[in-house]
């Protein structure tokens, strides 16, 4: 089969060269550089800053050292916190909340629906720093909005960032990302022909039955896509740093924050690079799962269309 093409090969190559160069200099080069550095004891200061030694797998072995693995502020502990964070804030929080909101949106009048969509997108496109500061102001012990509301209601104030830092970042990330899942599920629901639901209405189905038997099975592909995307994003998210700085006592130190601390606060470039490489590997696995599911899906769709 002859492929349709908009440009000749030579023109395409010409257009791609600048972008290709940029990618090479700023993405590929650092990528390999990090891998190389992860096998050295490079630091910012001292002798090893200029003449780092090749240390083999030592950085990696240190990360997986069983005696310190689960210690607070160490790699293993951070990995566990990150996993819990992903499970609670992305898979349960964002996806479930997004799904629920998207389903509720199907029942409201179109004009209101568009208004809600606009508001949600507005919240979603706010810069991270603005969001972080807004939440900080919201949760502050002395002058925070939440404590003011609690006081006005006669309830005790709480120092949430100190007492429940993990749940704060879970709720924060749920709030932050639910909009994306909602928009994705919303458009998935909208692509289902209305007559499917009307036929179910006439047949006597309840709202829950329509959701379970018709809507959910028909958007299964979108759910998988959503879960993998938000898992990857949440796994790499750094914004909670703006709220808790990874603390107190490393209780909210996600892998990205841990990596940042090792590399740019302790200035252990070799060690930090090793953490970075492992994060890259985890991301690679997630991306491969995502791509293979996407490929299987489009293959199934092609077959369905062909039959």
């Amino acid at each position: 089969m002859k492929q349709f093409s908009l440009l000749s090969r030579r023109a395409a190559a010409l257009f791609l060269t600048p972008a290709g160069l940029l990618v090479a200099v700023f993405v590929l080069l650092p990528f390999f550089w990090v891998i190389v550095v992860s096998f050295t004891n490079r630091t910012l200061l001292g002798v090893t800053a200029v003449h780092p030694d090749f240390v083999g797998l030592q950085n990696y072995i240190r990360l997986f050292n069983p005696s310190t693995f689960f210690t607070r502020g160490q790699f293993g502990s951070s990995l566990i916190i990150t996993t819990q964070f992903v499970l609670l804030s992305a898979l349960i929080g964002q996806a479930l909340l997004g799904l629920l909101l998207a389903w509720l949106m199907q029942a409201i009048p179109p004009a209101l629906k568009r208004a809600v969509e606009a508001a949600v997108i507005g919240a979603w496109i706010l810069p991270e720093v603005v969001i972080g500061f807004a939440w900080f102001a919201f949760l502050d012990y002395d002058n925070g909005t939440l404590n003011m509301i609690l006081t006005a209601l006669g309830l005790p104030r709480g120092d949430f960032l100190l007492q429940q830092p993990f749940w704060v970042i879970v709720i924060f990330n749920t709030w932050r990302g639910a909009a994306f899942s909602m928009m994705l599920f919303n458009s998935a629901f909208s692509s289902i022909p209305p007559s499917y639901f009307q036929a179910a209405d006439v047949a006597g189905a309840s709202s829950f039955q329509k959701f379970r038997d018709i809507a959910l099975p028909l958007i299964r592909g979108h759910v998988v896509t959503d879960l993998i995307l938000i898992t990857m994003w949440t796994f790499n998210v750094f914004t909670p740093f703006l709220l808790t700085h990874g603390g107190p006592a490393y209780r909210t130190e996600l892998l990205s924050i841990y990596n940042y601390r090792v590399a740019f606060k302790d200035f252990e470039f070799g060690q930090g690079s090793a953490v970075g490489v492992i994060i890259m590997l985890i991301n690679l696995v997630l991306a491969l799962i995502y791509l293979s599911i996407g490929r299987r899906r489009s293959k199934a769709e092609r077959e369905a269309a062909a039959s």
């Binding site: 022909p193 007559s195 499917y196 009307q198 036929a199 179910a200 047949a203 006597g204 038997d213």
Partner: peptide, 25 residues
């Protein structure tokens, strides 16, 4: 009962499940 112009059959259910859906409900 209503029969729709586009039939509104559920693409993920087989014919038996489609026909029996009102009974499942």
């Amino acid at each position: 009962s209503m029969v729709f112009q586009d039939y509104a059959l559920y693409p993920h259910m087989n014919i038996a499940d489609n026909i029996a859906y009102p009974l499942k409900v």
